[in-house]
């Protein structure tokens, strides 16, 4: 597959269809890939795709990194299913034009959460990582383990229903269609069934780890305000210290800002240096949006963002009678 991927990118560049291709290359660590920007076909052999390619590359069309794509007219980008939904969302929100981007889909079988790998290795350093079908081999000094990929997958991938891009110009291999409705929110329902005290305690435990580095926000292609509400200082709405209420309010509001816009790619959770289970909030919001407004983010180029839309006869059971 890797060869096809490199050929496809090289051909697009050679034919002048794109000036730049954004993809993944092998990283400096066994468990990491790294985003790469390719502008000529002889660099295309850096490109890879495997289960370490967790970055949602659509982020490079947003924030200041937009500059990369702004300077070039036509950009090609490799996408997993979730990344393509981010791209579609950004197109519907007029952040970029469909005709300026060449979308190249890659078949995704989920990406790993490095923390889960570390847990499997019981704290020992992982020095080699290889994958053969659904089995992953991790090696370190004096140990070697074979683990089913499933057990290492990012939480976001475990509930993913649309693994492959549905909006693309080119697909490497054969795209699988929407896998049909199953119950993707069973983990959230389980959490909802806990008592309020327990939920509050767990949330406190998670968010007290936050160091306010904003890695979650910055890797998110849906978070692209010129000035984020936490960075506003006149007036300053919330404190910038890792004090627990400020931290929780930051995360709650960030999740409301991406309500109906989150594609549940899980990039935020994988980026978090403090191992916070960020997706609980994202997925709770996504669940509400899906159940109440029937909207599936990033699956339709003509879609109106759920929170900018309404129906007059909507359920309003939460409003006092």
């Amino acid at each position: 597959m890797v060869n096809e991927l490199r050929e496809a990118a090289g051909k697009l560049l050679d034919d002048g269809k794109v000036d730049l291709v954004i993809g993944w290359a092998k990283g400096s660590l066994p468990l990491a890939s790294t985003p790469v920007f390719i502008s000529s076909s002889d660099e295309a052999d850096q490109l890879v795709f495997d289960s370490t390619c967790g970055n949602n590359l659509t982020v490079y069309f947003t924030k200041d990194n937009k500059k990369i794509s702004r300077d070039r007219k036509k950009v090609g980008i490799f996408v997993k299913g979730c990344d393509s939904r981010s791209l579609v969302l950004n197109i519907t929100e007029k952040q970029l034009k469909r005709e300026d981007v060449t979308i190249i889909g890659v078949p995704c079988s989920g990406v790993i959460d490095t923390r889960k790998v570390r847990r499997k290795a019981e704290g020992r350093e992982v020095l080699e990582y290889s994958q053969d079908g659904d089995t992953v081999t991790i090696k370190g000094k004096e140990f070697e383990l074979s683990v089913p990929l499933e057990e290492l997958l990012s939480n976001a991938c475990l509930s993913c229903l649309r693994k492959d891009a549905e909006e693309y110009d080119l697909f490497i291999g054969e795209p699988r269609k929407f896998s049909g409705e199953s119950d993707p929110y069973s983990d959230i329902e389980e959490y909802e069934n806990l008592s309020a005290d327990e939920r509050w305690e767990r949330m406190n435990e998670e968010y007290s780890k936050c160091i306010r580095c904003y890695a979650c926000r910055n890797v998110c292609p849906s978070c692209y305000c010129n000035v984020c509400f936490v960075d506003q200082n006149d007036p300053q709405w919330i404190g910038k210290t890792p004090e627990i209420t400020d931290t929780m309010i930051f995360h709650i509001i960030r999740n409301l800002h991406i309500a109906g816009r989150c594609v549940e790619c899980g990039a935020c959770e994988r980026a978090c240096p403090m191992d916070i289970r960020l997706l609980y909030l994202n997925r709770k919001v996504a669940k509400e949006v899906r159940e109440r407004f029937g909207s599936d983010t990033g699956t339709d180029l003509d879609q109106k963002p759920a929170m900018a839309d309404f129906r007059e006869d909507e359920n309003q059971d939460f409003i006092m009678g």
């Binding site: 985003p35 920007f37 200041d64 990194n65 160091i211 580095c213 890695a215 980026a271």
Partner: peptide
């Protein structure tokens, strides 16, 4: 810097970064 997303993860876990507000 092309790939940098400008989060503060590196600086906040760094033992020597010491800028403050």
């Amino acid at each position: 810097g092309a790939k940098c997303v400008n989060c503060g993860a590196c600086a906040f876990i760094c033992p020597t970064c010491h800028c403050f507000d």
